[in-house]
Amino acid sequence: MRERVLIGTGLALFLALFTYPVWWAAASGTRAAAPQLQLPQHASACVAPASFMRASHMQLLSSWRNDAVRRGVHKFRSPDGRVYDVSLSGTCLGQCHSKAEFCDRCHAYSGVSTPSCWQCHNDPQLAARSIQ
């Protein structure tokens, strides 16, 4: 019986310490600084709503990839009717986003490892710099 109390207290103490960062942050009301993302200067809307893109950009890119490579479909019509070229380097990076200051920064912030996209797909900014 005494062991049970001891074990119970020990476990509770462990859980309390283990979850310390979570409840301390919640209690004190401090929040981690949001990532400093560079947003597009010229474009006002993404190919899909930002909330959707934040959660599901990988599915969108994957469906773009299958469209362009496997189905030969190179145009994308967004939910609000605008038409884009299906191209990660050309449309996403070429027209709106900086890989380093948007993609990489958020991936680093959320602790998501660099996706394998960049093993093949080029960053036009980097390419432009290497030519100069």
Partner: peptide
């Protein structure tokens, strides 16, 4: 507001 499913459906239709 757009769920993933809705989005993919619209996208597929326009495609």
């Amino acid at each position: 507001k757009l769920t993933r499913k809705e989005f993919l459906l619209t996208a597929a239709a326009t495609l």
